[in-house]
């Protein structure tokens, strides 16, 4: 049973509270206070924008690469485990996604802080002379973000690896391939679509991250979203904030449509609908 109106509540809500607001906000980049390109001119001429764009990209790329390499190996190992163990691990991983991001970042503050276990053990080992905070730098931000985002890499790559017909591996064995060759010639190519999904998710989520760089990062880790927050909350300059948002959305859209033209939408939902 399905009726035409079934689309209306969900879509209507999203139009009213997502599409129209975002549209109206983006329009302010060229309409605040009147029709103008002033905000974009200021954006592209100012140093702060380019520096934070650089920060955003550098952090996102690092996080995505780390997640891709480690996440793929983890997914591969989980996919080769007997089903009950694999399922238990997946539940554990998915569960960490649902633990508040703020809580998980806060945990890193505790771990990496001046009185944290890493600092105190390094002092005890004689590597540091005195207790030092390991926070507010790029490594801390990358660590915190990998921690939050690696499940988004593991889940789709796991699905891809798991869908590989095990008979192919027996065929590899019978044809004399060593494990590393099986990996590079069969497993990796066949799991590329899953890996691509993971990379798209991790990279686009990284681009829009705010909480982690804001609390684990320092001056050198100011991202586009942080500039936006400041423009809105402190400078009250909506048009300028909207210009930042427009750039961010444009980048996301390019990545998304490139991905969709190559891989379609199904994997992004996790399955065909």
């Amino acid at each position: 049973m399905v009726r035409r109106w079934f689309w209306i509540p969900g879509l209507g809500f999203l139009v009213l509270f997502f599409l129209l607001p975002v549209g109206a906000f983006l329009l302010q980049s060229v309409l605040d206070p009147g029709p103008t390109f002033m905000h974009f001119e200021r954006l592209f001429e100012g140093r702060a924008f380019w520096v934070s764009l650089g920060n955003t990209f550098r952090i996102s790329i690092t996080v995505t690469l780390i997640c891709a390499v480690i996440g793929f190996l983890i997914a591969l190992r989980i996919a080769t485990l007997q089903r009950p163990y694999a399922n238990a691990l997946l539940v554990l991983i998915v569960m960490t996604v649902w633990i508040s991001l703020l809580v998980r970042n806060y945990a890193w503050m505790v771990l990496l802080g001046r009185e944290g276990i890493i600092s105190t053990s390094l002092v005890a080992l004689g590597i540091f002379e005195r207790k030092t905070s390991l926070l507010f730098n790029e490594a801390a931000v990358v660590l915190g973000m990998v921690h939050v985002l690696i499940p988004y890499m593991i889940i789709p790559t796991y699905a891809a690896v798991q869908a590989i017909d095990p008979a192919l591996l027996r065929a590899c064995d019978s044809l004399g391939a060593r494990p590393a060759q099986v990996f590079s010639r069969v497993l990796l190519p066949l799991s590329l679509p899953g890996l691509a999904t993971g990379c798209l998710l991790v990279f686009t989520l990284s681009l829009g991250f705010y909480v982690t760089p804001a609390i684990l990062g320092g001056r050198g880790q100011t991202t586009l979203t942080m500039l936006m927050e400041i423009e809105v909350n402190e400078q009250l300059n909506w048009g300028f904030a909207a210009a930042h948002a427009a750039v961010l959305i444009a980048i996301t859209a390019v990545l998304f449509f490139a991905y969709r033209s190559k891989f379609g939408m199904d994997r992004l939902w996790g399955q065909e609908l």
Binding site: A24, F25, L207, G208, T225, M228, V232, A245
Partner: peptide, 10 residues
């Protein structure tokens, strides 16, 4: 896909 920061500000 769109940063929650953008959705929230908008």
């Amino acid at each position: 896909l769109i940063s929650p920061m953008i959705s929230a500000i908008a």
